[in-house]
Nucleic acid binder design. Structure first.
Length: 295
DNA sequence: ACATAGACCTGTTGGC
DNA sequence: TGCCAACAGGTCTATG
């Protein structure tokens, strides 16, 4: 489910339940998610007090006062749900998803916090994972070491984009999905950003570093990546294949997609073409054959 | 070093 | 209605 905007929205919701609270109970309903939980996962976490939640790429990181960090990745189908003690009914992070019903088959992790909130991690496909590490080791951690720039930071600029694309023969689509270049983009926002920039998904990435056209394309692409992520954040992220409760706020960026999931539908630019879908890198790419004809 | 295909896992959807 | 193939927001790992 989650790319950068969704993960960020979930982080903000989780922060309400986690920050300032400590782990009073940790339940693992199975020995692994995508990877096995490390030995002593529960014991190491118990009584640790969270002082802040941060995000890096698509990871949410709970940092504790004693210097322990818990990194959480949601994979494709991971979800967090907060049950507030007083409310008795589920409240979800960022009011993003529907009210919660217990799902014993896929509720894999349950955190009982000292403030009375209960946080459940649900993940049907189990592509998500959690891991503990000393906060001070983050820069050298295998998961984080090679990550590229945060796209909403100043680290991503037209020139940095062109520089990292220089000499690369791979298609723009694959280039943008590479977390070592830009950290946090996924299939949806790559498709949307390429559309906004008017660039063909299969154009050679290296062209961004070549000539006047390359420079102009880098400018458009950089601006498009930032604007599509920014717009998605303002909309509360995108909810695909997730029922959303009628009174839930946010999470409606999917209604603003220009290309993703719109195969066969007319281009929003009014060019008269129909959005096409094709497989690229084993994933679906959506694009307008007219508006994204050439770099 | 780089690029692509396959693997992981389960549920939903669309076509015959 | 039933069955099966294709597909799904991610990313790690083999292979060429």
């Amino acid at each position: 489910m989650p790319e950068l905007p969704e993960v960020e929205i979930i982080r903000r919701g989780l922060a309400l339940a986690m920050e300032g609270a400590s782990f009073e109970a940790v339940t693992l309903n199975r020995p692994d998610l995508r990877f096995p939980f490390e030995a002593n996962f529960v014991r190491r976490l118990l009584s640790e007090r969270v002082y802040r939640l941060t995000r890096r790429a698509k990871y949410i990181i709970a940092e504790t006062e004693s210097g322990l960090s818990l990194a959480m990745h949601l994979g494709m189908t991971g979800r967090f749900t907060i049950l507030h003690k007083a409310a008795g009914r589920a409240k979800t992070p960022g009011a993003f998803y529907h009210d919660y019903d217990a799902d014993p088959r896929h509720d894999h992790v349950v955190f009982g916090m000292s403030n009375g909130d209960v946080i459940r991690y649900n993940d049907v496909r189990r592509f998500g994972y959690m891991t503990l590490f000393p906060a001070r080791d983050m820069a050298e951690h295998p998961l984080f070491k090679a990550l590229g720039v945060e796209p909403l930071s100043d680290g991503l600029s037209p020139s940095s984009l062109a520089e990292s694309a220089s000499g690369k023969a791979q298609p723009l689509k694959a280039f943008l999905l590479d977390q070592r270049i830009i950290a946090g983009l996924g299939n949806i926002y790559v498709c949307e950003a390429l559309f906004r920039a008017g660039l063909p998904p299969n154009a050679e990435a290296g062209l961004l570093a070549k000539g006047k056209r390359g420079r102009a394309a880098s400018e458009r692409l950089c601006a498009s990546v930032k604007s599509v992520l920014g717009d998605a954040l303002l909309a509360g992220g995108s909810s695909i294949r997730d029922y959303r409760h009628a009174d839930g706020k946010g999470g409606n960026f999917q209604e603003k997609f220009d290309v993703y999931g719109r195969g066969g539908e007319p281009c929003h630019n009014g060019c008269g073409a129909l959005i096409e879908r094709k497989a690229q890198q084993g994933r679906s790419t959506f694009f307008c054959p007219i508006c994204q004809a050439k770099l």
